[in-house]
Design a protein around this nucleic acid. Structure first.
Lengths: 242, 242
DNA sequence: ATATTAATTGTACGTATGTATAAAAAATGT
DNA sequence: ACATTTTTTATACATACGTACAATTAATAT
């Protein structure tokens, strides 16, 4: 129940969050405009718990005790549970979307009148996600696991549509352009397969490790190039005549 | 809450399950050794609900009212909630595993001293699942959706390991044999990607339809050949020298 | 100084949950 | 015919849930 809140105590001082060395927090308005930081800490705890236990498996009480706050503080900052969930997903979704759009724009500029190489499209979609999920920050790791968990659930599909479908459609359009010989619907199929694989890797369930009998797990980063190679070939096969 | 129980009333008569035309059921031992059929009906309802709402989102009361039984009947037949869940997953897992092992054995026999074609291995692993998920029976459809939902969750990983890892390892071994040039770990990666895509298709979230702007959803069966082509090329690319 | 606002604690409420116990009734065995 | 077993209904319990309300304290504004 009470996981590490060390990063919280590193950022905030006595009267804002429960730190290891200070006593229990007292009520009252904390120094400075700390509301934003408190919100971030709540989101971090919720993100971790939603990833570990799922939406229905996580209670608001879990979130509160997970970041050393009282129950009502969560509702005070985020309203009902679904809004908190939306905020968790949306926070990093906007960052991820920005990274992808920047990469896509750069590729478009570089390609000019030509089509963008398929491998480059795959890399620029999958790369930012896998890099974020494997580069230190436990927040991003939890987020990636959460997205994997959400992928095939109704609630997840709904919120993924809200935050990710627009950019996905842009990538699909570009893939269809680069794969002129392929059926457009097959390209969508391939894109879905690619996303599913990406999420499966970042969910870090340990299954690949178990299936291969390896001692240590492969990091998502190690898997990245294999994934790109695998899916590039898959897409190109869709364009080739059957 | 109260979904269709039509298939239940078709199979059983008055005093066994609540049918549309009969009054509320009375306590007492029903005619014939109906326990097995009651168990099946409970599993069907639980399967549908677990698929729709997830493990934590489904209560035992939901399952009971979903098949017209009292709460305690569920516990009577299956014990605690986790055991019910295990029974739901295990029931069709054993069927699926048998289908795959038969297909693999046939391929081995046919190949003799040769290696089995990659395409054939993919078809024989993915085919039975996709066929079951798209061939009429709503039970199998719910099951497939449930497996997709489970894929990246801790509880799901655990139970999938229990019922599916052994056969998965056999397929991976065979794939590694057929892809002599590939890194064994890359083959595991490709296998994981393939399974993720298979589950994503059968979860039927509607996302591919939304991303392509199609009016009607593609059935899993339609997607099957595309999936096989896509992943066959992916695997072969892992064997080719970089 | 004083009033106002922001952010928190503490408590409470109605409902839902998993599980257990008791009772009842129909089928089966002798 | 009667006792036993099986399967169900009915009820109960302790706990956990999401949300709401009231009280409290600190920072800010006037």
């Amino acid at each position: 129940m009470s996981h590490d809140i060390s990063h919280a105590s590193l950022i905030l001082d006595t009267n804002t969050k429960q730190s290891a060395d200070a006593g229990p927090r007292k009520p009252g308005r904390p120094k400075g405009g700390r509301s934003d930081q408190t919100r971030e800490i709540i989101l971090d705890a919720a993100e971790r718990l939603f990833a570990d236990r799922g939406y229905d498996g996580t209670s608001i009480r879990d979130v509160a005790s997970g970041c050393g706050l009282q129950i009502h503080s969560i509702g005070y900052h985020f309203g009902p549970k679904e809004s908190l969930f939306d905020a968790v997903v949306g926070r990093r979704a906007e960052i991820m979307t920005r990274l992808r759009r920047e990469a896509l724009d750069a590729s478009r500029k570089k390609a000019g009148a030509q089509t963008i190489p398929v491998r480059e499209l795959i890399r620029s979609y999958v790369g930012p996600f896998i890099k974020s999920a494997s580069h230190g920050d436990p927040g991003w790791r939890n987020y990636a696991a959460l997205m994997g968990r959400l992928a095939n659930s109704p609630l997840g599909t709904e919120i993924i549509a809200k935050y990710y479908d627009d950019t996905a459609r842009d990538y699909i359009t570009e893939l269809q352009r680069s794969l002129a010989g392929a059926e457009p619907e097959d390209v969508v199929e391939g894109f879905s397969a690619m996303v599913a694989a990406m999420l499966g890797i970042c969910a870090a369930t340990g299954r690949p490790q178990r299936l291969s009998g390896r001692a240590a797990p492969r990091t998502p980063e190690d898997s990245s190039e294999t994934l790109v190679r695998f899916h590039t070939a898959g897409f190109l096969a869709l364009a080739a005549l059957p």
